[in-house]
């Protein structure tokens, strides 16, 4: 299903995991658990050695996945082998996109991503100003290119991003890096209000850790929630304590279910859902 179509049904739950964390096989089971837990879209991280937008939780997941042998080619094999319903989005950093394939440039990466069934890309170190080449490649191969809007994004930049974005807009709930937090930022509602009239669905991420957070964010007007660190924490815990894969997968599924339920509860409280 295309990314925008996912949002037309109900509030979307968008979990994130790093592919290959801690190993290829275990990671496969964890991604399947996300699907069982109600994921609508899965942001699947392709690990890069210098993840400047990530907090400690995801940094460590990236180290585990790289140590486990994850590479761009293995990643695409992983996606090919994966048989799940949720729409898949690849999240990675620009150098891996740029270097992939024989010739420099994003084209080969995008072509391969489209072939294995990826519907969209999120590249946190690629602002709208640097994205023309990738935008063109995505257009050619039918991929969406998701951009991030931060609390600090100026009005002028919002317009630039609006021209480039497709699929959904990733609303960064707070400043800083990724990571689960105890509370939600009140800057979320502020940012959502600034892009209220955008047609593209709005998904909020950075710091969402519980079903209550999910509900609050949807109630504030978001069309979807993005959750990474709270799920990666479960993978890390399983790996650190030697918990078996089935048990960890089941904990991931339960957490996913909690978040999805929270998102759905939030939908019923939205004053006037503006689905396009």
């Amino acid at each position: 299903m295309s990314l925008e179509a996912v949002f037309s049904e109900e509030s979307a739950f968008i979990p994130y995991l790093v592919a290959g964390d801690p190993t290829y096989e275990e990671s496969m089971e964890y991604v399947e658990a996300l699907a069982r837990g109600g994921a609508d879209i899965i942001e699947l991280g392709l690990p890069f050695s210098e993840p400047i937008a990530e907090g400690p939780t995801i940094q460590q997941a990236i180290v585990r996945a790289l140590d486990g042998g994850m590479t761009p080619d293995r990643y695409f094999e992983f996606v090919e082998e994966l048989a799940v319903d949720p729409t898949l989005v690849c999240m990675t950093y620009y150098n891996l996109v740029y270097q992939y394939g024989e010739s420099d440039g994003p084209e080969s990466f995008v072509e391969r991503a489209a072939t294995v069934g990826i519907e969209g890309l999120v590249i946190p170190d690629l602002p709208a100003e640097e994205a023309d080449q990738l935008r063109a490649a995505c257009d050619e191969h039918g991929l969406d290119l998701v951009f991030i809007v931060a609390p600090t994004t100026t009005q002028e930049r919002l317009e630039r991003i609006r021209e480039q974005v497709s699929g959904y807009i990733y609303v960064q709930a707070r400043l800083g890096t990724t990571g689960a937090r105890a509370d939600l930022s009140d800057r979320t509602a502020e940012t959502l209000a600034r892009i209220e009239d955008w047609q593209v669905p709005k998904a909020v991420g950075f710091g969402i850790a519980t079903g209550d957070h999910a509900q609050a964010v949807i109630t504030a007007g978001a069309d979807g929630i993005i959750v990474g660190s709270a799920l990666v924490d479960i993978v890390a815990d399983g790996d650190n304590k030697g918990i078996n894969t089935t048990e960890t997968a089941s904990r991931i599924e339960n957490k996913a279910q909690e978040l999805k339920d929270g998102a759905l509860a939030g939908t019923s409280q939205q004053p006037a859902p503006e689905k396009q």
């Binding site: 400047i52 602002p127 100003e129 931060a150 600090t152 930049r157 960064q172 400043l175 800083g176």
Partner: peptide
């Protein structure tokens, strides 16, 4: 160029 997270662009 400027290959940084959106939060830093402003």
């Amino acid at each position: 160029g400027q290959y940084v997270p959106e939060a830093l662009m402003p």
